[in-house]
């Protein structure tokens, strides 16, 4: 279907409508700002459109899209860091400030604290925690997206939970 030019647009439109929300929320939890997430989700689908013909159908479409979105979000954060010569903690602080001033944050005080605790985690742990806790994905799925072993993901998730619990108790 993707290799047929006549059907490609139609198929792509269906894909966009089906996965846009899940990809948006995944990216939003990584970069926090709505505007940045909007840009990154559009870039994700644009890259998917350009690579649709070469998409190997043995890989799940959703997994492939998730991988593109994750890479886009991580690249965005890395660029931000190198562009302004920021250390890791400053990017976390920036994201935390964005969270506090975000007009599209509808959570309560406890949810705000949880998000702040998540932002203090290292990038990989943060993504693993979000995918496991909020998106309720299986370790196998996360493994195929991030290219990390299930064992390493389990360890990452448990470290993340420990750190978040510690942060919430202290605050």
């Amino acid at each position: 279907m993707f290799r047929n030019p006549a059907q490609k647009s139609y198929a792509f439109n269906l894909i966009t409508r089906k996965y846009q929300e899940r990809l948006y929320w995944h990216v939003r939890k990584i970069v926090i700002s709505h505007d940045d997430s909007d840009d990154l989700v559009q870039n994700t689908f644009l890259k998917a459109w350009e690579g649709l013909e070469s998409f190997r159908e043995e890989a799940q479409l959703f997994t492939w899209l998730y991988r593109i979105a994750t890479n886009e979000a991580l690249t965005f954060l890395r660029k931000k860091r190198t562009k302004f010569f920021l250390p890791l903690t400053d990017v976390e602080n920036q994201l935390s400030n964005t969270l506090e001033s975000d007009s599209y944050f509808s959570g309560d005080e406890m949810q705000m604290k949880l998000q702040k605790a998540i932002l203090r985690l290292p990038e990989k742990q943060r993504i693993v925690f979000n995918m496991k806790y909020f998106d309720e994905m299986k370790y196998e799925e996360i493994s195929s997206i991030l290219g990390t072993s299930v064992g390493a993901l389990k360890a990452s998730y448990h470290h993340a939970v420990d750190k978040i619990e510690k942060f919430l108790k202290e605050n």
């Binding site: 647009s9 792509f12 439109n13 966009t16 409508r17 846009q20 929300e21 948006y24 929320w25 939003r28 939890k29 709505h34 909007d38 989700v41 559009q42 689908f45 644009l46 459109w49 975000d102 599209y104 944050f105 509808s106 959570g107 309560d108 406890m110 949810q111 705000m112 949880l114 998000q115 806790y133 909020f134």
Partner: peptide, 25 residues
């Protein structure tokens, strides 16, 4: 309760997103 998505989007954001994406394509 904590599992609930605390983020929101502008109104009709997901209705307009496919059009934006198609235009960019």
């Amino acid at each position: 309760e904590l599992k609930k998505n605390p983020f929101a989007t502008p109104a009709d954001y997901f209705d307009n997103l496919p059009t934006k994406i198609q235009n960019r394509c």
